[in-house]
Design a protein around this nucleic acid. Structure first.
Length: 284
DNA sequence: GTCCAGGTCTTCC
DNA sequence: GGAAGACATGGA
């Protein structure tokens, strides 16, 4: 048999919301299942009563890489309990989508994707990332009669591209940023592995050295790839949420909002951020 | 046609 | 320090 599958018995996990909530950009819904790429493997995930089922196109004995990516073993109830219980806005956001989770992505792919995200809608980011993978990624094993799927190209591969090749992937003015960043990663000028053992502030200051990476994109990578639970990306949606819900009268400065995000939401502020983001985008 | 999108960087006051 | 403008592209 050249096909493997497993089931992660997990409760309170909303696969669709999690995979389509703008953390990762390579998941596609196909006939009720979700197809994507994790750790160089093509994967198909399906929400079942007993949990999440996973299929791969290769023979695999170990699923820990996917278990880690999906954060199956996180104490999710503890995360929800850590939220400020008297915050009715946040509680409402949680109720509206209580199985929304955070993924744990590979840093370079997350970083590269979010460099491409600035002032783009999520659907367009997905299109750009898909083009980048098709043109510069490596072909992966897929099921028979399944369309070809490619890996997200390494920093080395992107660093070897010409800027106009990248622009052909519709990324516009983001092309030089992705290219320069890829070169800094490939040359070792910035070592993404080293960020795992840094503090949140140290890791952020390292990321913002990269062209096209400011505070918001750095926080996305710190939250979605490195798992810093207090990283709190403030984008246009979160800005709107914080202003409307928490500061309806005053017009707080950006600095004030950052301080609020770090003090009000507790040790898992990043999760709270994802709930508010999803809530603002999906409510009528 | 106009507005805006999971921003960042530069310029100018 | 904070407020504008530029930057490509395409969906709403």
């Amino acid at each position: 048999m050249k096909f493997s599958e497993t089931v992660f018995p997990v409760r309170n996990y909303d696969l669709a919301a999690t995979l389509s909530s703008g953390q990762a950009f390579r998941w596609r819904e196909v006939n009720g299942a979700w197809e994507g790429v994790v750790g160089g493997h093509w994967v198909r995930l399906t929400q079942k009563n007993e949990g999440i089922s996973a299929e791969a196109a290769e023979r695999l004995g170990d699923w820990n890489w996917l278990r880690h990516y999906l954060q199956i073993d996180v104490d999710f109830e503890a995360v929800l309990r850590s939220f400020p219980q008297d915050d009715e806005h946040l509680q409402k956001a949680v109720e509206s989508c209580s199985g929304l989770r955070l993924l744990r992505q590979e840093p370079w792919e997350c970083l590269g994707s979010f460099i491409l995200s600035s002032t783009k809608q999520i659907v367009q980011i997905q299109q750009i990332v898909a083009l980048v993978c098709e043109r510069f990624g490596e072909p992966l094993k897929v099921p028979e009669n399944h369309p070809q799927v490619f890996s997200f190209p390494t920093a080395q591969r992107v660093a070897n591209c010409a800027e106009n090749e990248l622009r052909e992937c519709k990324m516009g003015f983001r092309a030089p940023n992705l290219l320069k960043t890829a070169k800094m990663i490939a040359s070792g000028e910035v070592d993404l592995q080293s960020l795992y053992k840094m503090s949140l502030d140290e890791a952020r200051s390292e990321l913002v050295r990269l062209p096209g990476v400011g505070g918001k994109i750095a926080d996305c990578v710190l939250l979605f790839a490195y798992g810093f639970p207090k990283a709190f990306p403030i984008d246009v949606w979160i800005l709107k949420a914080l202003r409307q819900l928490y500061f309806p009268k005053r017009k707080p400065t950006a600095k004030r909002l950052v301080h609020f995000s770090q003090t009000h939401f507790g040790p898992n502020a990043g999760y709270a951020q994802q709930y508010l983001f999803h809530y603002m985008r999906t409510k009528t």
